[in-house]
């Protein structure tokens, strides 16, 4: 631990402020795009929920296409968390590992690697929803 501290004194600090500004702008823009897409679907007569779902679908597909063209990693480098925290970042982390394992075959290569980063996200999210639901259920029985 002592050496870690000593070594840390030699490395450059990340540019906290500019990184945060970039993340803020990138994240804000992605959310705005989501908002516009949703507005578009609302204007053709969809209800709130359907439009929201469609917006998600469009965002995910766009991000995955950009990943395929090799653009999303550049955006990610610029925007940092601003590009990885939105749903588009999730979509990126689904495709990116899968693409690399193409030569390992469509089943055990792409098919399993597609879950390598996204699997934990889906699983733990689902587990959280179970936990919350179960606690609520228990509380309902007690009270």
């Amino acid at each position: 631990m002592k050496f870690q501290k000593y070594a840390n004194s030699f490395k450059d600090r990340p540019k906290y402020v500019s990184n945060c500004i970039k993340a803020f702008v990138a994240g804000g823009i992605i959310c705005l795009i989501g908002h516009f897409i949703k507005d578009g679907f609302l204007s053709i007569g969809m209800n709130q929920e359907t439009a929201g779902t469609w917006a998600t679908v469009v965002l995910v597909c766009t991000a995955q296409l950009l990943t395929g063209f090799g653009v999303y990693d550049i955006l990610g480098k610029l925007g940092g968390a601003g590009c990885s925290v939105p749903i588009t970042g999730f979509a990126n982390s689904v495709v990116a590992p899968a693409m690399e394992y193409k030569r390992e075959g469509p089943v055990l290569g792409v098919g399993s690697k597609i879950f390598s980063l996204a699997g934990p996200v889906i699983l733990l999210g689902l587990a959280t929803s179970w936990a919350v639901g179960l606690i609520k259920w228990v509380l309902q029985i007690i009270f």
């Binding site: 990184n19 990943t67 395929g68 090799g70 999303y72 990693d73 550049i74 955006l75 990610g76 480098k77 925007g79 940092g80 590009c83 990885s84 970042g89 990126n92 982390s93 495709v95 990116a96 590992p97 693409m99 690399e100 980063l117």
Partner: peptide, 9 residues
């Protein structure tokens, strides 16, 4: 990380 994963080093 995968090459096409958007992250910062």
């Amino acid at each position: 990380m995968p090459l096409e994963h958007g992250n910062q080093r």
